[in-house]
């Protein structure tokens, strides 16, 4: 398995950039052999991960930096990395629990969506250094000739 294509986005932790990241990654992953539903799920995952960095990583401070890297592999697989250099997560296992949120107006479903719509999710975080998410997903290669 080798990298076929990749993109790296770096942007300020502004809430407006959640839509930018979602649309950019959504456009990039159209290169995969996957369905529109799959792309919608990837966009949701990006939206959740970047929103987490803005809201929780930087406490809505727009001066932070967020990095999104997306790799497309030659086996029709995908790796997404979302990194911030914010306050970090003190208790990762608690944060991964459905409906857990440090903010009462949030649903605490961000990580649940990431876990549900990606095959693998790894979370690395250090207090006051930041958080890095690595997510993997592969798509079955559709044999279009056989379907024709």
């Amino acid at each position: 398995m080798s990298v076929k294509n990749f993109v790296k986005l770096e942007f300020s932790s502004l809430p407006e950039n959640v839509a930018f990241a979602r649309a950019s990654v959504g456009a990039f992953v159209t290169q995969l052999d996957c369905t529109l539903d799959d792309i919608e799920e990837i966009k949701l995952v990006i939206s959740e991960a970047v929103s987490n960095s803005v809201i929780h990583g930087y406490n809505n401070d727009p001066h932070g930096q967020i990095v999104v890297i997306v790799y497309i592999f030659d086996n029709n697989g995908l790796e997404i990395i979302v990194e911030d250099y914010g306050k970090g997560i003190t208790d990762i296992s608690k944060a991964l629990k459905p409906t857990y949120s440090t903010d009462p107006v949030r649903m605490g479903l961000g990580f649940t969506f990431m876990q549900s719509f990606m095959d693998e999710l790894e979370v690395h975080s250090e207090p006051n250094k930041g958080t890095s998410l690595k997510m993997l997903r592969s798509f079955a290669i559709i044999n279009k000739e056989a379907l024709a």
Binding site: R22, L44, S47, E48, S51, M107, G108, L109, F113
Partner: peptide, 13 residues
């Protein structure tokens, strides 16, 4: 055309 957990949170609130 799109909703995420922020949108869901707003509705639940």
């Amino acid at each position: 055309t799109f909703i995420d957990s922020s949108g869901l949170g707003m509705i639940i609130g």
